[in-house]
Simulated scan of single mutants.
Amino acid sequence: MDAWQIVHSVLAVVGGGACTVAGAACVWPINQPRRHVPANRPASRCQSRPVEWPKASTCDPPRQPFTLADAHIAMQLHRDHDCARKRVAFAALVAAGRIHPDTARRHRLWGKPW
């Protein structure tokens, strides 16, 4: 037997074993009872919700007040520059107590170094 026949035989045995394991896994009985969650039980705080990213990025102020999730997203999207949307998002997060402005920069204009 030459080297190619040995490699072919090894690959055939490994492939056949993988197919056997996959086939057994498909028909293997699973005897785990399903966990029933009552409908009136409140949702857990640990469950993650998908973040809805905006379809278009604009720097104009929003038409309606930001929710906390929208304010966080706006701060992330506009972190590299100063614009009206970022200022409104910052104010919403400060009002909600999520962030605290730096007291050393309270009277400093954004983007204007002294």
Rank of each mutant, 00 (worst) to 15 (best):
Q5M: 07
H8L: 12
S9L: 04
S9V: 01
L11I: 11
A12P: 00
V13L: 04
V13Y: 01
V14A: 01
V14K: 03
G15S: 11
G15R: 09
G15V: 09
G15E: 07
G16P: 03
G17K: 02
G17I: 04
C19Y: 12
A22F: 11
G23C: 14
A24I: 13
A24R: 12
A25Q: 05
C26E: 13
V27E: 00
W28N: 05
W28I: 02
P29S: 00
P29Q: 03
I30W: 07
N31Q: 04
P33Y: 03
R35L: 08
H36I: 00
V37M: 06
V37I: 12
P42S: 06
P42A: 04
P42R: 07
A43C: 14
S44E: 15
S44R: 15
C46Q: 15
Q47C: 13
R49D: 08
P50V: 09
V51S: 04
W53R: 15
P54S: 14
P54I: 08
P54A: 14
S57D: 15
T58M: 08
C59F: 08
D60E: 12
P61T: 01
P62H: 00
P62A: 01
R63A: 09
R63P: 03
P65M: 05
P65C: 06
P65A: 06
F66M: 12
T67W: 02
T67M: 00
T67C: 00
L68F: 02
D70F: 03
A71D: 09
A71R: 05
I73F: 00
A74C: 14
M75D: 11
M75L: 15
Q76D: 14
Q76K: 14
H78N: 10
R79S: 14
R79N: 14
D80R: 14
D80H: 14
D80W: 07
H81S: 08
H81C: 09
C83K: 05
C83F: 03
C83W: 01
A84Y: 02
R85Y: 01
R85G: 02
K86M: 04
R87G: 05
A91E: 04
L93M: 04
V94K: 05
V94P: 02
A95I: 05
A95M: 07
R98F: 06
H100I: 15
H100T: 15
H100R: 15
P101N: 11
P101L: 10
P101Q: 08
D102S: 10
T103H: 07
T103I: 09
